[in-house]
Write a protein that binds this DNA or RNA. Structure first.
Lengths: 162, 162, 162, 162
DNA sequence: TTTT
DNA sequence: TTTT
């Protein structure tokens, strides 16, 4: 449920390979550094390029897929929401972070499913449980089997003609 | 899962009260007629208004909420996807329909929960099944509530669009 | 200006080469056939694929770029709005069309600028005037030269820090 | 022009009246504090509400309209892009800011044009220049010059924060 | 058929 | 700091 809309849509390229972490419960947390750039003219009429680097987080099953298939340089579509966080460091200084919490991801430019091949990174650490379960960032995360790559399903029940 | 992105975002006003139907399995199908209009200048520089009427469908729990709380004239935010359908009438003529299949809905302009009050329309026909937990939009679904249910012909009435 | 929001975001692949037409005033009208598909499980648990074919129109400068650089099979990002039209044929039968009127386009998957090379299609017919002018579908469409590939500019004036 | 997509869509309520500033050139800069909140269940199954406060900036004509018509508490639709900035304070400490740069705005919930009445704040400071035609959002702009341009290396690699 |  |  929501009071309001907080939606982000990004198409960009990865500046680095994905970074993987796992919660104690074994849930994947994948962090991407994603560049979107645009060109405009400044006051003197010169071309000016500006790049925004987005910190994108993908949780659970979606994070695992991202960690397996994405690599530095790849182009990706991300849909999610903005989350602002504040931490106070040991030095007592407050630090602010802005993350994009993804709820959908699409690899672009071909190579979709098997395309470039999986990375060598292990998909999950020993001891992790089969994901899916106790998600806390990923809305939905289909309990069951398949890997929908999206956590919104417009068809809640399945007796809909398809 | 998806190969591609098909996303629609609408903010508009209802031209009529929602229309409710139910599958044999008891799933709600709510249809909205939603207006979005824009003004531009034509070649002569005159203000020209144009209104698009979107046919929006909401299924399941989301459809029930829409049917209960929305009314003619209300402003609403819809997120969903475009679906094109073709039916051949008894006269052999093909008919084309474009629907927006909603996966998120937000009532706008206050009155959200108790606001204008529920409509008098019955929320569900006799025999319908109870409809699970309370959540706008249906990211995820799964987990808690109602079980999927089979119906032999999910769309008994639906060879009559509109 | 608008009373409401009517926004579409698509990522898909072209089913065909772009079709080009030109108004009497010389403005380009480019039509794309764009596929977005999704996979779900039906009631029996089988994978079911469904593809939507969107008819996308790009006007003016944006249409010329599309006509030059896009080709059958290419993946593209489109942002625009839905427009419903009704025509009555010579047989007296009403026909309905749904178009996506693009206001932004991004070629995906590399090959952006020079990528696969321009198509052989002429960019503009003899006698056409240098485009840009008499737009009727394209909001904005910079009168003069430049090729912004987007018609929204968040920086209306240029004394903005960049 | 853009290499990538950086798009934000927000529907929320203003936490305060808009703040207006003006550049030396007289261009308006309107800053909004916009709340979007969502409710989910935490691990214990309790309802947890979380609110994000977005800092939204609107420039030029759009900023003037926002400054005149918006007020604390009003609900608004914003479309724009994310911009990350870093400033170094006089104390030598780096500070990070995330702004949403709006390119479209829609007041929601009625009261659109004359609704609540204009605020008492002056619309523009003395010396400001007049600010062009009247249109919400600013599709269009453009006019001027240059051709698309390639940048040699769009991805200067990995001097990326985070 | 809505809304401002 | 908003809203329901």
């Amino acid at each position: 449920m929501a009071r309001g809309v907080n939606k982000v849509i990004l198409v960009g390229n990865l500046g680095n390979d994905p970074e993987m972490k796992y919660t104690q419960g074994g849930m994947a947390i994948c962090t991407l550094s994603l560049a979107t750039s645009s060109v405009r003219k400044d006051k003197e009429g010169n071309q000016q390029e500006r790049t925004e680097w987005h910190r994108v987080k993908l949780f659970g099953k979606l994070g695992e897929i991202a960690g397996e298939y994405l690599k530095k340089g790849r182009q990706v579509y991300i849909e999610g929401e903005i989350r602002y966080d504040k931490f106070t460091g040991q030095d007592g200084v407050e630090k602010y972070f802005t993350d994009i919490i993804a709820n959908e991801m699409q690899m672009l430019g071909g190579g979709g499913e098997g395309g470039g091949g999986r990375s060598e990174r292990p998909a999950r650490p020993a001891g992790g449980r089969p994901s899916g379960g106790g998600d806390y960032g990923n809305r939905g995360g289909g309990g069951g089997g398949s890997a929908p790559q999206r956590s919104d399903d417009p068809f809640p029940d399945d007796d809909i003609p398809f």
